[in-house]
Design a protein around this nucleic acid. Structure first.
Lengths: 249, 249
DNA sequence: CATTTTTGCGCAGTTTTATGCAGTTTCCTC
DNA sequence: GAGGAAACTGCATAAAACTGCGCAAAAATG
């Protein structure tokens, strides 16, 4: 049996039954448990299902038992992100009207922002709650809420954006290359990024060095549309660009 | 049974019944109390429920009755609110487009809503996050975020509302009288309630009986604009209205 | 304050997982 | 097609996770 076919049948079984155990799958597909486990690893990475101890479940039922907040992503490049955000926070002036993109990097920025009367707008509901809890003035874009990133997308968000004019903005990016520009994995979120960026005067992309040289699925802006604040092992060929700003931890 | 599956069923039971004891869970899931306790520990850590002496409760009931234990959890209209919300949840059809008001009563409704493909819209960012975490389709109004109630108000919210047409909606109210109508303490939030109500076909106000006969500061709708689902000691003079729906705990 | 219930924790036994290895298949290049 | 790299598979084994039980400590109860 083809690997792809086996994968398809695993996904189908999980969808049909909600949860399946590894031995069940091994018996049904007449293969070893090792193979099933490796399959589940891949399917989990591909977000087709969720691997759990003993087997697999659908994403829907996994929602119940897992805290799908940004908390899980912490730890990666934490120190670099902190350095980047410290630099970014210093850019905020009392009179600024600031856009804050959703994402784990900008999340670190939240706590470093000065307690001034600057106004903030964000597409992330969790960011908004934290900012409001600090007593800052926050406006939330409307729109459909994607649970994975807790970001808002869709026409509602874009309409509100169309009437706002930011003096300053901070965005994250999953990939950055001179050729593909700034890229993000999700088309809807990329659209919000694109529109919000068009409406800001001073634009900064906050990204640790691991994002440089990588390309994600959807381009939301050109490479030179924003100042890129980065930190970490910056590849030599990126040092010469004058919109790359390297900070030290 | 898979560990993850058991976790899901525990969460489900807690959501359905509000509170569950350890022995009940052990019997229902045919496992030992030790295992149940360990499960509750993990689910508590994952913020899926709150572990209390004797068993577990949902997050919002723990919030309402903070440091009370299972035995003394009565009062505070908890049971009435749950009865009201159970009735309300049953009104949602699979293809409804539902508005959900911010507030503590509608908060209880969140966990009782059926996992259908109905679409939900709310002005409460915390409600939205909880709904999204359950895998439901959620749209959030935009606007300024008031940290006290975590509700969104202002022109951004009203603009988005102006383009939506709900088949069904649930609101809270702080005061209800035939003369003053439905009242709420905060003018901006009252405005959002008013506009959202105008845009819904089937309108329900969820309020325990303590709200009947009281008047808050701002009227957001007439007494007869919505069906009022209530529970508790309903004053005799309210029994005759045909838009008052009294449910039993 | 005594009684009963519930909890936390160590322990032992079982199940599940991760990983290295060897053999095989598949795919790509020339 | 032929050769070689990469991927896939199954097995063995050590590590990790899970479960049930018993008992002392802690918490609730009246």
């Amino acid at each position: 049996m083809l690997t792809a076919e086996r994968h398809a049948r695993i996904v189908e079984m999980v969808r049909l039954r909600g949860t399946v155990t590894v031995p069940e799958l091994a018996a049904a597909l007449e293969t070893s448990e090792s193979t099933i486990r490796r399959d589940l690893d891949k399917l989990d990475q591909a977000h087709q299902l969720v691997k759990v101890h003993g087997g697999a479940t659908t994403r829907e039922s996994a929602h119940l038992t897992r805290d799908l907040t940004l908390g899980e992503r912490h730890g990666l490049h934490e120190e670099e992100k902190r350095a980047i955000c410290a630099h970014a926070a210093a850019l905020v002036q009392p009179d600024d009207f600031v856009y804050l993109d959703a994402g784990s990097t900008t999340e670190i920025l939240l706590d470093l922002l000065p307690p001034t009367r600057a106004g903030y707008v964000t597409d992330s509901v969790s960011h908004a709650i934290r900012l409001a809890a600090r007593g800052l003035s926050v406006t939330v874009l409307g729109g459909e809420l994607k649970s994975a990133t807790e970001a808002l997308v869709g026409p509602g968000a874009l309409d509100l954006l169309a009437r706002l004019h930011f003096t300053l903005g901070f965005w994250g990016a999953n990939g950055i290359t001179p050729e593909a520009g700034l890229t993000s994995p999700e088309p809807n979120e990329a659209m919000v990024k694109r529109v919000s960026m068009e409406r800001a005067t001073r634009r900064y992309v906050l990204a640790d060095a691991s994002k440089l040289g990588r390309t994600s699925l959807v381009t939301f802006a050109d490479f030179c549309d924003a100042t890129i604040v980065t930190c970490g092992d910056v590849p030599e060929e990126y040092r010469s660009f004058d919109n790359i700003l390297e900070v030290r931890p």
